[in-house]
C-alpha cells in the first residue's frame, strides 16, 4: 500500500499549486494589498521581513478568497488526494503562531516540521524554503509579529484514504527532501546569485516550472523546463533561455513581465502566474526583478519536453 500511495504523494507539491488560480477573487487581492500596505510603521527588520514575505508569496495561500482575513488561512487547495486547508499564520496565541518560538518557525520553514515534530505535507513548499537564510527567517518572523492576530480556527485537511496518514510523509522526505541552506554557484555574479536565491528558494518557482518524474519528484535535469501536464493538468511554461522558452526575451523583458504581467508582445500572463505576479513579483523591487531575470537567463536552455 505504501508503494502504491507514494507516487501519488510525490505529485502533491506539484498538484496543489494548481487549484489556486480558479479560486481567486479580485477582492481578495485588494484586501491583501491594502493590508500589506497598511503596515506603514515597520522597523527595518520588519520591513525587510515584509520583502521576504512578498518574495515568498505567502499571502496567496494563507489568505482565504472572498475577503478572507489576512493570513488567517482557510484557503481550500484541492488536489486529487483531497482538499488541503491552509493554516492561520497570524500571531494569535491559540489559533495562529503566537505561542511559537522563532526556532520553531525556522524549523517549520526549513525542515518542514510542526512544533510537535510531525511533518508538513509538501503542499507547503518547504522543499524550497529550506534554503532560506537565517537573516530572512528572522526578519520574516519579525514581520509576522506585526500582523493583526486572528482567532480563526484551522480547518482539518480533507484527504482521501490513505493520504490522511502523515507518517507516509516520512519515506517521501527520505527520498526527496534535502534540507539545507542555499549556496549559490560561485560562477554566478552577485546579481545572478541574488536572482538564484529568489527563484530557487523564496519564489519557489520550481514547484511548478520544473516537471516531475513518475514518482512526483522534481527532475533536476529538466529544471525550469516547464511541462504540458503540470498542476491540475495545466500547462506550465518553459522559463529556460531555449527557443521553446524565453530565448527571445531580454532580461529587461522578463523583469517587465514579472512587474506587470505583459509579455514583449503585450500578451498577458495566464492562470496561476497571474496570482504570482499580483501577490509577489509586482511588489518586489526593480533590483530583485532584474536579479531574477538575470538568473533565468543563466539557466541551462532546455527544449520543451
Amino acid at each position: 500500500m505504501l508503494l502504491r500511495a507514494l507516487p501519488a504523494f510525490l505529485g502533491l507539491a506539484l498538484l496543489v499549486t494548481a487549484a489556486q488560480a480558479q479560486e481567486e477573487q479580485d477582492q481578495e487581492e485588494q484586501t491583501q494589498e491594502e493590508q500589506a500596505e497598511a503596515t506603514a510603521d515597520l522597523s527595518p527588520a520588519e520591513e525587510r521581513g515584509r520583502q521576504v514575505f512578498l518574495a515568498a508569496s505567502c499571502a496567496g495561500c494563507h489568505t482565504a478568497p472572498d475577503e478572507g482575513t489576512f493570513l488567517a488561512g482557510g484557503r481550500a487547495i484541492s488536489s486529487p488526494f483531497g482538499t488541503f486547508y491552509s493554516p492561520n499564520i497570524t500571531p494569535h496565541p491559540e489559533a495562529g503562531l503566537g505561542n511559537w518560538s522563532e526556532a520553531e518557525f525556522a524549523r517549520a520553514l526549513r525542515e518542514g516540521r510542526m512544533p510537535g515534530g510531525s511533518a508538513y505535507y509538501p503542499a507547503f513548499p518547504y522543499t524550497s524554503y529550506t534554503g532560506m537564510s537565517d537573516a530572512d527567517v528572522s526578519d520574516l518572523w519579525a514581520y509576522i509579529q506585526t500582523i493583526e492576530p486572528s482567532d480563526q480556527a484551522n480547518r482539518e485537511h480533507d484527504l482521501s484514504f490513505p493520504f490522511g496518514f502523515r507518517f507516509l510523509l516520512e519515506p517521501w522526505r527520505l527520498l526527496f527532501f534535502e534540507e539545507g541552506r542555499f549556496e549559490p554557484d560561485p560562477a554566478l555574479s552577485e546579481e545572478e546569485a541574488r536572482g538564484a536565491y529568489l527563484v530557487e528558494v523564496l519564489g519557489h518557482c520550481g514547484e511548478c516550472h520544473t516537471p516531475r518524474n513518475r514518482l512526483g519528484a522534481q527532475e533536476q535535469d529538466r529544471a525550469f523546463g516547464g511541462t504540458a501536464t503540470g498542476p491540475d493538468g495545466r500547462r506550465v511554461a518553459n522559463i529556460t533561455p531555449h527557443e521553446d522558452g524565453l530565448a527571445d526575451w531580454s532580461a529587461g523583458d522578463i523583469a517587465y513581465y514579472l512587474e506587470t504581467g505583459f509579455t514583449p508582445e503585450f500578451d498577458y500572463a495566464g492562470g496561476a502566474m497571474v496570482e504570482v505576479i499580483e501577490t509577489s513579483t509586482s511588489q518586489l523591487s526593480d533590483a530583485d526583478r532584474q536579479a531574477m531575470a538575470a538568473y533565468l537567463k543563466r539557466l541551462a536552455p532546455l527544449p520543451r519536453e
Binding site: 480558479q22 516547464g226 500547462r235 506550465v236 500572463a269 495566464g270 520543451r304
Partner: peptide
C-alpha cells in the same frame, strides 16, 4: 489579469 487568472491557460 482579472480575466486571465481564471479563464486563460498559462502561457507557453
Amino acid at each position: 489579469g482579472a480575466c486571465h487568472r481564471t479563464y486563460r491557460e498559462e502561457l507557453d
